[in-house]
Nucleic acid binder design. Sequence first.
DNA 1: CATTTCACCTGACTC
DNA 2: TGAGTCAGGTGAAAT
Lengths: 240, 240
Amino acid sequence: MEKPVLSSPSADPSLVFVVKEHMFDKVVTPSDVGKLNRLVIPKQYAEKYFPLDPEESDREGAASSPAETKKLGLLLSFEDRGGKPWRFRYSYWNSSQSYVITKGWSRFVKEKGLGAGDTVSFSRGSGNPAARRRLFIDWKRRQPQPARPHLRGFTNTIPLPSGPLTSPFNSIMACGHHWRARTALYNVNWLAPAAAAQPKPEVHPGAPAATMPPSVTLGSRSKRLRLFGVNLDFSEPLPE
Amino acid sequence: MEKPVLSSPSADPSLVFVVKEHMFDKVVTPSDVGKLNRLVIPKQYAEKYFPLDPEESDREGAASSPAETKKLGLLLSFEDRGGKPWRFRYSYWNSSQSYVITKGWSRFVKEKGLGAGDTVSFSRGSGNPAARRRLFIDWKRRQPQPARPHLRGFTNTIPLPSGPLTSPFNSIMACGHHWRARTALYNVNWLAPAAAAQPKPEVHPGAPAATMPPSVTLGSRSKRLRLFGVNLDFSEPLPE
DNA sequence: CATTTCACCTGACTC
DNA sequence: TGAGTCAGGTGAAAT
């Protein structure tokens, strides 16, 4: 067990400090923050910290018997750094032999804006059994990634993928956008006409070689691309 | 209640006609006829015609008490237009707050060859309470869809919306595509540059006036649009 | 085994 | 906006 640490003030105004023991961290995968709406808990930590067949089956949300618990899972209640409670369903998936947090997880991902590579951290209170039953969840952003260019349109600002920009169209010049309502996930891509009777795109400044066709590749330092007489402006990534 | 109608001969050879009252129709979704093996009954109809907590809990397959019925559902017995009996489990899903027909439904879908967009129709006998307890199910193929132009790209064929094609970009020429995985719903849109130093698009043949900006409108008879030196070919809708 | 059934779950959408 | 509906999913159990 790691050295207990003093936390920031908890939600309970009568407690100024909570002594916590760190349990484990997980660097979340794309699936952990994607639409599968589940977080896989590494088996070694799951069995150590969140046993599903405990002798002392006194956890909140526990079913009546250990066998039932194994089948139905548990309701685990955490507090985040602001004292906000988070209740997650935690269970074992026989099919994948893995321990997962399911219900409630996607709300956490959304509220915190978790992305792949970010770290979630699990702790519990330190001290007597009652204190140790108190669970905490925290998270931190992954190390800053190299800046990516963004295309700032007239009405939309659209994060660009870092790789080559491609389109399912091979025979037309197409500038496509693809997004999901009410999320910030946008995907812009385009292609040059196959038989281009078009001016070659000019990239300013410090342009990498723009290969087109089959695709336009933008360097992270490009700030402006003039394409078919149209100015495309790139900006730094949006503040998060 | 709609006007009672005389049906075709029923399964009971002693009865030549059955008087039916139409209850409701549902245009089935892809999920209703897909692998989920369930039919969602719109709540308004479910609660009106197939109540799960009836005072008179005398329906076939009803559990012993109203509370039990709510939990376990009912066995509903229908006759199709040929008098063939169809028994479906009908219940309420707490999690999605929806009424569903489950067991038995996939067999109906398979036998009738139901596809998305087809309509299933629910009726019951007209007259005294006993007659009204007799349930009927029928279905009809969806209307042939009106032809829509399709944009046939090199690698993709993308159904176009019938209305004007617009884009959230106002300042660049953008040809966007927007779709949801595994459904056939695609949405193609584009716009001309706001300050177009571009040739006007030419539309062949029988072109409607192409207004651009702010948007390009394609008539259903347009087969080809030459836009910025790029040919866009339109075809009839794909065979289904 | 695959397929069906079952009891959940979530997000997109509507009002 | 927030609440309700429901289409489209899931894992597990039943068949």
